[in-house]
Design a binder for these strands. Structure first.
Length: 419
RNA sequence: CGGAGCGUGGUGUAACGGCUAACAUGUCUGCUUUGGGAGCAGAUGACUCAGGGUUCGAAUCCCUGCGCUCCGACCA
């Protein structure tokens, strides 16, 4: 994409009503626009970043047998009444609305109920199981207090996968796989080393749920981490008894703040029983399906990347979440030869299948480079009068700042991405 | 939902109860400049969140509402 066509403008200063670093940078760089508290529009760069994150998650979900679908945001109260989650006393963050005829509707804050109900049409026999269904979908939660920009919103995109298994053993095996998939996801997104699988309270059907907590001062959870074992325990369940059970010692634990970027938990038959999701086993006996749910908030992940990977100059995206693979910057926009070289180069990069943001704007160099650093695309390629003379282009890594020089032919072969 | 704070051009800030609401930045024009947010000149742009009140006089004081931020509670 030509940057001259990218209508969003970068800003020198952040709006005063955003304190969180991630929100400030995302707004300054033109990734998001605040519509109201806790509600943010994704601008082109933000959307592209979100799609990159989504694709990483999709690949890892598919790898463990996930099948993608898309449920509705509008929810019929009936199914939620069956599981006793419609009353505001039971669930206090519903957004509710009405049809013209007065019938009440809800805007989904999660999707166990509708999916479980749908599955009654498709699960009849043990031969139908297991099933792993997931979606990327907008959730609505009427939070009393939205927070930290995109980190805790009232409308946000979430990946939610639900597992349907015929017995506990089958469920447990998948649960383990899901843990590994989540580790892969956060590793690929560049926060693997600071994201801890964390034991948290598990609800009715199991002792624990597992949260994936990314260490950051601005996180809203307090957890205790064992750095050697790469495991953490949420403060809410951190008792001596539980530590003993987990084989952890309090003296190896460090108290830190973290943000929950994902969580997985056992649902048992909490939903399959009230919604009559049952199957026949080999003997023709009926059993309720064993379920689990596995969530990742994409906006929160994007915000977390912005929060923990950015530096004093702006955003720093990991390769797999970078809105573009390459930021091509012409630093001599007034020189004909440089313009021609940059234009040709841009066409060639795109023809080679690379996603490129091409800064073709006629602006002072310093401003273009400052913009590039603020936007934070992983690889910057700098074209100017100097590079025409030498026949080599500068490849600058946004994160490390290291500069390599490389010929066009090598760049087109993708060599810059290696090492 | 409890507590605290804040609403002034697009953005960030300033202005004792008193002159035509100031400065920076942005935007637009022209000239100049081009490898890290350059310079000069001119222009544009605000019923000071809304409504009420006090006062000769309100951005400023008071009340109500709305919005926003932060701390806490909550977070299936």
């Amino acid at each position: 994409m030509r940057q001259s066509k990218l209508f969003t403008k970068t800003r020198r200063s952040a709006p005063k009503d955003e304190i969180s670093k991630s929100a400030q940078y995302l707004i300054r760089a033109g990734f998001i626009h605040k519509q109201m508290a806790g509600v943010y529009t994704l601008l082109p760069l933000g959307l592209m970043t979100m799609k990159k994150i989504e694709q990483v998650i999709r690949e890892e979900m598919n790898k463990i047998g996930g099948v993608e679908l898309s449920l509705t945001a509008l929810q019929d109260p009936e199914v939620w009444k069956k599981t006793d989650r419609w009353d505001d006393d039971k669930v206090d963050n519903w957004f509710k609305t009405k049809l013209k005829n007065g019938t009440q509707l809800g805007l989904g804050f999660t999707h166990e109920e509708p999916l479980t109900e749908i599955m009654t049409n498709h699960i009849h026999s043990y031969k139908d199981l297991p099933i792993y269904a997931y979606q990327f979908q907008t959730k609505f939660r009427n939070e009393l207090r939205a927070k930290s920009g995109i980190l805790r919103g009232r409308e946000f995109l979430m990946k939610d996968l639900y597992s349907f298994s015929k017995n506990q053993k089958e469920h447990d095996e998948f649960y383990k796989k899901a843990q590994e998939a989540y580790k892969n996801i956060f590793h690929r997104l560049g926060i693997g080393d600071r994201t801890y699988m964390t034991f948290a309270s598990g609800g009715v059907f199991s002792q624990f749920s597992h949260e994936f907590q990314t260490l950051t001062e601005t996180g809203e959870d307090t957890i205790f981490v064992d750095e050697k074992k790469k495991i953490a325990v949420n403060k809410e369940v951190c008792t001596d008894e539980i530590l003993a059970e987990l084989g952890l010692s309090r003296k190896n634990l460090k108290e830190v703040r973290a943000i929950e970027v994902g969580n997985i938990f056992n649902l048992g038959t909490r939903f399959s029983e009230p919604l009559s999701l049952v199957f026949d086993d080999e003997k023709g006996e009926k059993h309720p399906v064993i379920m689990g749910s596995y969530g990742i908030g994409l906006g929160r992940v994007m915000g977390t990347l912005a929060e923990v990977l950015s530096d004093e100059k702006g955003l720093v995206w990991p390769a797999e979440a970078s809105p573009f693979a390459v930021h091509l910057i012409n630093v001599s926009p007034e020189e004909e030869a440089a313009v021609k070289t940059a234009e040709d180069f841009y066409e060639n990069l795109v023809a080679n299948g690379l996603s490129v943001l091409y800064d073709d704007r006629k602006m002072a160099v310093g401003e273009k480079l400052a913009d590039a650093d603020l936007i934070g695309i992983k690889t910057q390629i700098i074209v100017g009068a100097k590079s025409i003379q030498s026949g080599e282009f500068e490849i600058r890594d946004r994160q490390t700042g290291s500069i390599k020089k490389m010929s066009e032919a090598d760049i087109l072969k993708g060599k810059f991405a290696k090492a």
